[in-house]
């Protein structure tokens, strides 16, 4: 028995080792290293000084930290529901029998394959005031408004959420679409015989069947939205002022513009804890709900 186990160990090592090494080096070690760095005045040129919990105290009193965390949360609150609902609508549209079905699916998904820099510059050039495509199109059809899509703090958020929606909603749509196609036809047939209207079919069969995948999409979307950064940095660069700056950008700027890696690592830990709590809460909610049904 013992021998068998040991031989199992030896056999397992070559299979496990490659992943184990990269995983420890690039996923686990950074967590530990980050904790260490958060206790130091750690500049990018490596002037290192132990300061205990000072970074954490600074974080709690740093209005910019809370503001940028709030911006990210705001984005999550706005983008998540719209993203999930629009994905569902698109999936329903793309699931209808039509000659153009393949075209619809392709079109809704196509923006997803573009690089973040491409979609950001597309957005910049389309949303520019006066000469941008959208505003000049508005003028063309007789609307003489001049919305400043990227310069007003509220409108800038609308633009960022809109662009992100356009860019990534296709991904969620595909997940919904797959779940839609998994709903067996006999369920609909049976209900139709009972004289159910289309609305009733949707409400009583389609929607309940989509709830499990909907939950997964919700969880993935919340986590993904909390990581928002690149398109904001490229489109508004956190502006006007700092009114759209997300937490990841603030962490990056602290580390690489202000060269304060220690404080940046501290705030990363703050974000880490928040994301951890969120995913535990969601997992808990999921399992308890799953238990009820």
């Amino acid at each position: 028995m013992r021998n068998k186990r040991i031989s199992g160990n030896i056999k397992a090592i070559p299979f496990l080792l490659p992943f184990f090494v990269v995983y420890v080096l690039f996923t686990i070690w950074p967590i530990i290293k980050g904790l260490q760095m958060s206790f130091y005045d750690w500049s990018i040129i490596k002037k290192i000084r132990f300061i205990g919990l000072e970074n954490y105290a600074q974080m709690l009193h740093d209005p910019d930290f809370w503001a940028s965390l709030w911006h990210t949360t705001l984005f999550v609150l706005f983008s998540t529901p719209t993203m999930v609902i629009l994905a569902l609508v698109l999936a329903l549209l793309a699931n209808k029998k039509s000659k153009l079905q393949a075209f619809y699916r392709g079109a809704y998904f196509l923006p997803t394959i573009l690089s973040v820099s491409v979609i950001s510059y597309l957005a910049i050039f389309m949303l520019q005031p006066y000469s941008g495509f959208i505003n000049s199109f508005l003028h063309l059809i007789g609307i003489h408004a001049e919305p400043f899509w990227m310069a007003g703090p509220h409108l800038a958020w609308v633009s960022i959420v809109g662009v992100t929606l356009w860019w990534t909603v296709g991904f969620n749509m595909i997940l919904f679409l797959a779940a839609l196609q998994d709903i067996p036809d006999y369920m609909y047939e049976a209900a139709k015989i009972d004289g159910a209207t289309r609305w009733q079919l949707f409400w009583n069969i389609t929607l309940p069947q989509l709830i499990p995948v909907g939950r997964i999409i919700l969880l993935l979307q919340v986590l993904a939205s909390y990581k928002i950064f690149a398109q904001i940095m490229l489109i508004t660069n956190g502006g006007p002022g700092t009114s759209t700056r997300p937490i990841i950008q603030y962490i990056y700027q602290t580390g690489f513009h202000k060269y304060n890696l220690g404080y940046a690592a501290t705030m990363s830990y703050g974000l880490f804890v928040i994301l951890l709590i969120l995913s535990i809460l969601q997992l808990k909610g999921q399992t308890s709900q799953g238990g009820e049904s």
Partner: peptide
């Protein structure tokens, strides 16, 4: 960086 951020909030009227 701070000056430009804060001035920008003046220029956009917020």
């Amino acid at each position: 960086d701070f000056m430009m951020e804060d001035l920008d909030t003046i220029w956009n009227g917020s």
